[in-house]
Amino acid sequence: MSYALEAKNIHKAYSGHKALNDVSIAVKSGSVFGLLGPNGAGKTSLIRIINQITGPDSGEVLFHGEKLRAEHVEQIGYLPEERGLYKKMKVGEQCMYLAQLKGLSSNEAKTRLMDWFKRFEIHTWWDKKVEDLSKGMAQKVQFITTVLHEPKLLILDEPFSGFDPINAELIRNEMLRLKSEGSTIILSTHDMGSVEELCDQIALINRSQVILDGTVKEVKNRFRSYTYELIYKGYAMDLGIGLWASFELINNTQHEDYSVAVIRIPDGRKLNDLLSSLLKDLEIISAREMIPDMNDIFIEAVNKFNASQS
């Protein structure tokens, strides 16, 4: 398995305050990696270390297996959460400048910019001043300057904030396209919907530590409570008898001509066992495992960790 980025046992402290405490993450090449966590947990500190804006107090960062070096900045694209542009500069000029800072030649930058401007349908903006752009327009320009040098690793911090749903979709599609072309993406966001939709792996940082990590599937499995939602027709009493002491009834709601029960299946038993004990008295309409979504997992993991600390 090749990793685009590995951060190993990173420690970082700012004047007495621990920003990162033994943080390790491993981002697989070609994947989308969700870096999650509450505000102030240490995500930005980690991102700044990866971008070599600051250095770690201890620990090491490997980029495609090599120790992170200054030259690697040209293979990384970073869209910070706190992002802006020079207001007085023209859009084209500014994009050229940022592209050249990332190591592109002037000609190369111009050709690629023209392509992107056409793709985003903003080619008329070239000579516009940045201060005349709306927030959404500026965000598009920022996204382009982040990906223009075709970085192997993209770090996007809250990339959808400030976008309307149509433009957010545009960015989402671009991310998927870049991924399909081999880019690795680290996505830091509070929008759990996009985490579910886009991420292959996640790491949840809370109070300077990684408290949860793995592939989205693994994490979800870890938080699986083997709880099922059962829609049936029949008497509630028959349900009680069927469950008896073997299954735990969490909730039962009766509707006009059907009922919905939430049932937890204990270790060692399966859905089949549940169904076979109920089938003779009830008519089962549907049975569905209630898999926790990332939002629930986030809240549960953070609360659990915080409770254990206090």
Binding site: N51, Q52, I53, V73, E74, I76, Y78, L79, P80, E82, R83, G84, L85, Y86, L98, L101, K102, Q142, T145
Partner: peptide
């Protein structure tokens, strides 16, 4: 807020 973009380069 352009500073962070620049110093990542």
């Amino acid at each position: 807020r352009i500073i962070e973009v620049i110093i990542s380069s």
